[in-house]
Amino acid sequence: MNIQEMILALQKHWSDQNCLLMQAYDVEKGAGTMSPMTLLRSLGPEPWNVAYVEPSRRPADGRYGKNPNRLYQHHQFQVIMKPSPANIQELYLESLRKLGINPLEHDIRFVEDNWENPTLGASGLGWEVWLDGMEITQFTYFQQIGGLEANPVSVELTYGIERLASFIQDKENVFELEWTKGVTIGDIFYQPEYEHSVYTFEESNTDMLFNLFSMYEQEAKAAMEKELVFPSYDYVLKCSHTFNLLDARGVISVTERTGYIARVRTLARNIAKAYVAQRERLGFPMLKKEGEY
């Protein structure tokens, strides 16, 4: 099964579970969790079920396309279900069957792993799912988001697409994975991997990036003052990515580092609160829809 087929199979499966199929969000981010489709929508009482592929940028993981397992940008398949359904583990295992992974022929385990993202004031409890010893999915029940208690609790499934594909296609080098018939990840992503690594580690204009961070931060605050939650959040994402670029370049000292993370976290917390307040003023419209349904 190539990656394209895998994505289609996952989309079909979660679509059948009444998940909205969304597209990747168009601002750079380090993980699918940071998409507003997860981070903001998992707040508040309104039901929310969604699935999407998220290209995730982690500048510090760039390896010039030379490491068989590490990438500047990898792909996550992200699922959020709020409230978490009682049969979520079965639904997940069913999705693996759709990928051709028969549990009777493998060893699939749920091994404790608790997740925390201090930048976003978010944390959760759950597992990493092991497939014959390989971690293929992060399975998390959100407990806190943007510093607010998650209530009801959303469950988040994050499949590592490349990890799963390397298992399914039995390849050891990520660049040899088949995206679709005759086209590999290497064909598509080797050059960007190389260039992004060069840029991140050698060529980035750090003065400009420092400036950008401040400007984005200012803009996030300004937007918040006008109660523009979504635009403000976009700028928080930009802050976060800019910080990651600077951090990967090694130009943020340790003391400063804590400060930068705290700045992003403050923004995220305010946005989380404002988002819930905004939905509340609207009367939590998706909650009503559920009732009428």
């Binding site: 407990q143 998650a150 209530n151 609790v153």
Partner: peptide, 8 residues
């Protein structure tokens, strides 16, 4: 040692 909430 650690507790969690789920669903509602």
């Amino acid at each position: 040692a650690n507790n969690m909430r789920w669903a509602e």
